[in-house]
Design a protein around this nucleic acid. Structure first.
Lengths: 351, 351
DNA sequence: GATGACACCTAAATCGTTTAGCATGTGACA
DNA sequence: TGTCACATGCTAAACGATTTAGGTGTCATC
């Protein structure tokens, strides 16, 4: 009884298929993969039988033999932020189109968890890793991944000096664009909401902020920088603190759209209207940005594009481990919507 | 230095480790997995050596031998909708805590793509599948996955009569809650935005809409149902169409928050204010709902909770394939915010 | 009729683990 | 001294695919 069931449900392997067809496993294997060395008739017979018997290849076995898994490990520090969801979706789509499958790991911005997660992923011997490293990741953490000859590509964030491929946006230029826009509108006192030192994007975006100010000849005032992770809640608090300053800014750029949304809430809570009483520029241009009320002026960073680039880099590197390191930094574009306007002409507060 | 040496000496495998330690692979294997049959001293020696040499187990080999991969295939029809992102994040977290890794597949609501994707995932022999099936998925499509003895769990959506475990929200009750809320506010003419027949959630939510009306003794009017997928853009169009009716509704429930956001935009475009001129209830309560302006009254569906439930069901079923089928339907909760209010007392339009 | 050339297929050796079943060594005990 | 029990490790056979290095049969050519 048990036998019958297991016989019926019995796993159909290459060997079983070969047996049933009176062929060798070699021929069946080659036939299934459309090798030109097997005769057309045989190939069709094999493929037909495979279909009929519901044969499903066993990648573990193939991987063991070939040292190729067609798996790409994708390690992100967060997937709930819509920006990273878009990124993940783009990476998944591009890889899947190339016949690769995504093995997912999420670090939650925690290096310990990242080490554990990536270590586990590594046991599956992915052909490549695409990683957006958690804050405080060290060069060695990434190097360890590459040690076994696995391609490693950084996306969005990078560990400077790691020497791995990178795809992301030119964050420095991007935030500078936002500042330039505010300056052009007439703002001189411009704050920054969110962003922190422990990640490359934080550093690059802060640098962009400073560069933008410098280009306009505006001195940098550290009091106007409200560092923090890119959360909504954190953005709200940052805005409250900006508004509570002795000499509050009339405008701000922010680390990402999420913190900008929080900042918008902060403005609202303070009875101010963005785009009239205060100007705000976001970063990323996630779908929500256009729909917010008022709609968010922000910097569009082509996330799906650089997600696809990351996939391309991974495919290229796994094809040739020794190719020159490639960095892809897409130029962001300013998208002017309703949260920016010239500064209020007169009194905002008793200065 | 250490790295370079091990890199030069080639891949460090169990066998190599065994050789270097003067032990058999059997012993090393057992030692690494803390088997009690190996002496304490030996175990420590082995584990120390493994650490020192940077040994990374090869899951393909282990999987081949044990027919266990510790992989769970997660097939979603969409990951960009924040509701599914939250779901994915919850599933990933729960599985990862149980030592399982997520192999991701996205169907984009396309059965053909789903078949291909899940077929590919199957080659990796996941211990279980957690699936939110694309529209028009047939029972056989899922059965095919389970054929090889893989645990299959449905999440969010289900294929009725498939006989697989399921975790989701009680959508019928949920939407009925929303309708009841509108009825209690005094609305009698209530529309429905989004949702379609080809998916179980569409059917269940429509049923909830009808049930809600019936409970209030309000006749069902098919003209008030604007079916469609749960997109923002589609919600906007649906609202425009509702407002263009001869006798437009004074309120509506919607298939999900995304279509509700679209509907809010539609209202705004029509110069109406949600929560004053028109009442709207969303579904899911994604983070964005509370932040929208005005904030969205919606039905909270405990997405992370049922994501975790799905993970639990998958773990349970992979431990015991013959356990009784389990369905988990969490009861949603109405969250009243600012988009609902009593109907405008007098004229809305020339009727 | 020997000789290749060619088309097609096969035997067998891997890949790195796990595990059933057996071997060895050591004391305790009769 | 012989026997038993126990602790500890080892041998060897899987697992299911891929691939190298042939093997076999057929046909044209010299």
């Amino acid at each position: 009884m048990e036998d019958m069931r297991s016989a019926r449900l019995g796993k159909v392997t290459l060997q079983r298929l070969a047996l049933e067809l009176g062929l060798s496993t070699a021929t069946v294997s080659l036939a299934l993969r459309d090798s030109p060395v097997v005769a057309d008739g045989t190939r069709m017979r094999v493929q037909e039988a495979a279909r009929a018997r519901g044969y499903v290849a066993n990648r573990s076995a193939a991987a063991l033999r070939t040292a190729r898994t067609n798996i790409v490990g994708v390690g992100l520090h967060d997937i709930v932020n819509p920006a990273f969801t878009e990124l993940l979706a783009a990476i998944e789509e591009a890889l899947s189109a190339a016949g690769k499958t995504v093995l997912l790991g999420v670090s939650q911005e925690d290096v310990t968890r990242q080490t554990r997660t990536l270590g586990t992923l590594a046991e599956y011997r992915p052909d490549a890793f695409i990683v957006s490293p958690a804050a405080h990741t060290q060069v060695e953490d990434l190097k360890a991944l590459a040690a076994t000859g696995i391609a490693v590509v950084q996306v969005t964030r990078e560990i400077e000096g790691s020497g791995f491929d990178f795809a992301g946006s030119d964050d420095r230029a991007g935030v500078a664009l936002g500042v330039a826009h505010l300056v052009a509108l007439g703002h001189r006192r411009i704050g920054m909401v969110g962003g922190f030192d422990a990640i490359s994007t934080g550093r690059k975006r802060l640098a962009g902020y400073k560069a933008g100010l410098a280009a306009a000849g505006i001195p940098f005032d550290p009091a106007l920088v409200m560092a923090g992770p890119g959360h909504r809640e954190e953005g709200r608090r940052a805005m409250m603190r900006l508004l509570a300053l002795e000499a509050p800014p009339t405008a701000a750029v922010s680390f990402n759209d999420l913190s900008a949304f929080g900042a918008l809430m902060g403005l609202q809570a303070a009875g101010l209207t963005a785009g009239r009483d205060f100007s705000l520029v976001g970063y990323d241009d996630i779908a929500e940005a256009a729909l917010w009320h008022p709609s968010l002026t922000t910097v569009h960073t082509f996330i799906p594009e650089y997600g696809r680039e990351a996939a391309r880099l991974a495919l290229a590197r796994m094809a040739d481990l020794s190719r020159p390191v490639e960095r892809v930094e897409l130029s962001p574009r300013l998208v002017v919507r309703d949260t920016t306007s010239p500064p209020m002409p007169v009194k905002r507060r008793p200065l």
